[in-house]
Design a binder for these strands. Structure first.
Length: 600
RNA sequence: GGAGUGGUAGUUCAGUUGGUUAGAACGCCGGCCUGUCAAGCCGGAGGCCGCGGGUUCAAGUCCCGUCCGCUCCGCCA
């Protein structure tokens, strides 16, 4: 009879310690490695909790030793024996290193092909190969560890919101209605209704609001969302969202509940005490000072808008042309450092800024004080700047001898995007991105609408159910661009963890917002009729937010890609190399769904 | 849709101005070995150089195309 039936597992591999010496055990796992000394055979046994050394000697358990001689890497084995001390032969690298199991019986439960890559940490194998054999990649401790934390974080999250804050965990449909706003939908053709399609949820936005209309009061879901857009290291076509909604609350109430959760997760996962309340910054300030709406505030290096100071006062050709075209100039002052070289100024920085539309990066090096007592400049910008202006800029930018200033001049969007990027590049180069530092902030007061130049219409910056600030509702008729929304994003170390808003709970305001977005009453009814109907039956003031759960895990795990925290991720072309999805299907299936392949 | 980058034994890589039989390390297979833990020693096997064209006396190397991975721009309310 197999050991599996006669000897239930007593311990996981990583659990045994010196206090277990003398204990009879039954252990199960994968062979990490074996070392055959002719006599004694050592086997490192692995499961997701760690490694354990087995010792098999020829006597008195000859049968076990004979089997030990045959085992190979990644075979699955069971062993029974006794925990003994390793004495002077302890291995300080392993948590179980002070003990080993003197094996009395050994059984091979499963043989294994030689794996296509070694199952160990720190290997730099082709991502291709790893994704094809994802189940093997997941055996690697540095990866499986991420999923242990993922599981724990989910449990802490459910516990916190349901038991401590009165949330209900509720589910919403996966087969939903397609609406053309936002990201591209994944569509599912209906068999029963020819030419009709379901859409997979980009987020359960309307449904969670309907839960508030239903009186569920507080809703929580850890839900899968789908967006058919191109991938990035931090974007997968399906991802997991912590979705929340609350009734009878203000923005501050929602932020407070979330902050408590953030503190709890960081405390339990990393032992880090997050100081509450979290920092807040308006969208306008973030754009002005950091050029983006998710600044990494582990370090300073703020940007300075010099447009007003420089216009009409510099001869530097590039700036003059940009001013004539209505553009702006912003500066990124940097402290003295030999970590930033001439090559960076000439090559790296322009290359980093180019993808955002910047035609170049101007710069000035700050030298010693000249005859007039003003720090001198060298570099492309230096010549066109008078001594008086230089003195002024030295003061405003806080420049010191040996320092450096980077300038980008262009349209505001280009200037902000490229300098935001350069700020991160310099922060990294100057060693200011401490992986153990955690800088959270709420970005608040987002604009309600942004002008879509291509479509010549207003678009919702967050989504069309976001409530304007109460005192800005009047501007819906006069100046939509000036309206600020009751919307907020949670940012950590330059990553947008999530965002949300107070929702519109008045039908008249919702109707006006749709109109501003260029949706006629008929169009709004067609798309969101069920939702607008519901709002008329007594809607509580409500709001909520959604957190990108995978991105949160990325931060907690120190992962550089979402793929490291999603068990079975897709490639950049949205395929699964392991299961080979998506795949073609039988023509009969096309026919059933009333669709036909398009001739290419 | 666009830009960049990579693809050579199972794996990670090297491979010169185009020039003998494409190498190394690790892994794998066999043998020896009773305290290893990156075990050690001896021996061995293992290659559609991503794929398809082209240039050339000769292509892993040069040119064109294509497929796949990754990073980024566009896109992601």
């Amino acid at each position: 009879m197999s050991l599996l039936h006669s000897n239930k597992r007593t311990h996981r591999c990583g659990e045994l310690r010196a206090t277990d010496i003398g204990t009879p055990v039954a252990v199960y796992g994968w062979v990490q490695s074996y070392r055959d000394h002719g006599g004694v055979v050592f086997i490192d046994l692995r499961d997701r909790t760690g490694l354990l050394q087995l010792r098999c000697e020829p006597t008195p358990h000859a049968a076990a030793h004979a089997i030990a001689n045959t085992v190979r890497v990644e075979w699955v084995v069971a062993a029974i024996g006794t925990v003994i001390s390793r004495g002077n032969n302890a291995n300080p690298k392993l948590p179980t290193g002070t003990v080993e199991v003197a094996v009395e019986a050994l059984e091979v439960l499963s043989e294994a092909l030689t794996p296509p890559f070694e199952i160990k940490d720190g290997l730099e194998t082709n991502e291709n190969l790893r994704l094809q054999h994802r189940y093997l990649d997941l055996r690697r401790p540095e990866l499986s560890r991420n999923f242990v934390l993922r599981s724990e974080a989910m449990q802490w999250t459910r516990q916190y919101f349901t038991a401590e804050h009165g949330f209900l965990e509720l589910e919403t449909p996966i087969l939903m209605k397609s609406t053309p706003e936002g990201a591209r939908d994944y569509l599912v053709p209906s068999r029963v209704h020819p030419s009709s399609f379901y859409a997979l949820p980009q987020s359960p936005q309307t449904f969670k609001q309907l839960f508030m209309v239903s009186g569920m009061d507080r809703y929580l879901q850890i839900c899968r969302c789908f967006r058919d857009e191109d991938l990035r290291a931090d974007r997968q076509p399906e991802f997991t969202q912590l979705d929340l909604e609350m009734s009878f609350v203000t923005q501050e109430d929602i932020e407070a509940v979330l902050e408590g959760w953030v503190a709890l997760i960081w405390q339990r996962a990393l032992g880090v005490e997050v100081k509450l309340p979290l920092r807040r910054m308006t969208y306008a300030d973030a754009m002005d000072q950091y050029g983006c709406d998710k600044p990494d505030l582990r370090f300073g290096l703020p940007l300075h808008d010099l447009t007003a100071r420089l216009r009409g006062r510099v001869e530097f050709r590039v700036f003059v042309d940009v001013f004539d075209a209505g553009g702006i100039v912003k500066a990124l002052p940097l402290p003295p450092s030999d970590l930033i070289t001439r090559k960076d100024l000439d090559k790296t920085f322009p290359a980093e800024a180019a993808p955002f539309g910047a035609k170049g990066v101007a710069w000035a090096r700050v030298g010693a004080a000249g005859p007039g007592g003003v720090l001198e400049w060298s570099g492309p910008v230096a010549k066109g700047v008078s001594e008086a202006l230089r003195a002024e800029l030295n003061e405003v930018l806080g420049l010191v001898e040996g320092g450096l200033v980077l300038f980008v001049a262009d349209k505001p969007a280009v200037v902000n995007a490229s300098l935001a990027r350069l700020r991160l590049v310099c922060g990294e180069r100057l060693g200011k991105m401490d992986p153990k530092a955690w800088s959270f902030l709420w970005v608040t007061d987002f604009p309600m609408f942004e002008w879509d130049e291509g479509a010549k219409r207003w678009g919702a910056m967050h989504h069309p159910f976001t409530s304007p600030r109460a005192d800005h509702i009047g501007l819906l008729d006069t100046d939509p661009g000036a309206i600020l929304a009751q919307a907020y994003d949670l940012v950590c170390n330059g990553t947008e963890l999530g965002g949300g808003s107070i929702r519109i709970h008045r039908t008249d305001v919702q109707a006006k917002v749709f109109r501003t977005l260029g949706l006629s009453d008929e169009e709004a009814r067609e798309k969101f009729g069920f939702f607008l109907d519901a709002l008329q039956y007594g809607t509580p003031p409500h709001g909520g937010l959604a957190i990108g759960f995978d991105r949160l895990l990325m931060l907690l795990c120190g992962a550089h890609s979402l793929r490291d925290v999603i068990a079975f991720p897709k490639t950049q072309k949205a395929t699964c190399l392991m299961s080979e999805s998506p795949n073609t299907v039988d023509e009969r299936q096309w026919a059933e769904l009333h669709i036909a392949p398009r001739r290419v």
